[in-house]
């Protein structure tokens, strides 16, 4: 059970994020929602990488009794998460920059009023 708690947290985070994107009218809040979904996905990747009894794959810092490479954890999920965080920051910066520019043009952050493009 205890091992499933992170997965439950992942689902909750994604649901909260989607709620913010779908039901909030302020575009800053929508951006926050996307960031929350992203945290959920990152948490999911990190949780996947957890192995009970595994050791971080740092050769110079290994405990004496551990065997190489049997108990080392393959660090791919962590690497994925780092990449994903970096991409997430870029997306976040871009979205916030767009939000600023949209505010300058439309004088509002309300997504229901930012719809010159329809039909």
């Amino acid at each position: 059970m205890i091992y499933n708690i992170p997965y439950i947290a992942v689902i909750i985070l994604i649901m909260v994020g989607l709620y913010a994107v779908v039901f909030k009218r302020n575009i800053i809040k929508m951006v926050m929602g996307i960031t929350i979904i992203e945290s959920g996905v990152n948490l999911f990747l990190v949780t996947l990488g957890y192995r009970a009894g595994g050791v971080a794959p740092i050769f110079t810092n290994l405990p004496e009794e551990r065997q190489i490479p049997g108990q080392l954890v393959l660090p791919i999920p962590q690497a994925l998460t780092l990449t994903s965080i970096v991409i997430g920051v870029a997306v976040l910066a871009l979205m916030l920059a767009l939000a600023i520019q949209i505010y300058r043009q439309y004088k509002t952050l309300d997504v229901t009023k930012i719809r010159r493009l329809k039909e």
Binding site: L18, V22, I27, V111, T112, R115, K118, E119
Partner: peptide, 17 residues
């Protein structure tokens, strides 16, 4: 069909879901 194209970003996400 025109009223389907609301232009609201949230609806785009909703259609995706």
């Amino acid at each position: 069909i025109k009223s389907m194209h609301t232009g609201d970003t949230r609806d785009y996400v909703l259609w995706f879901l």
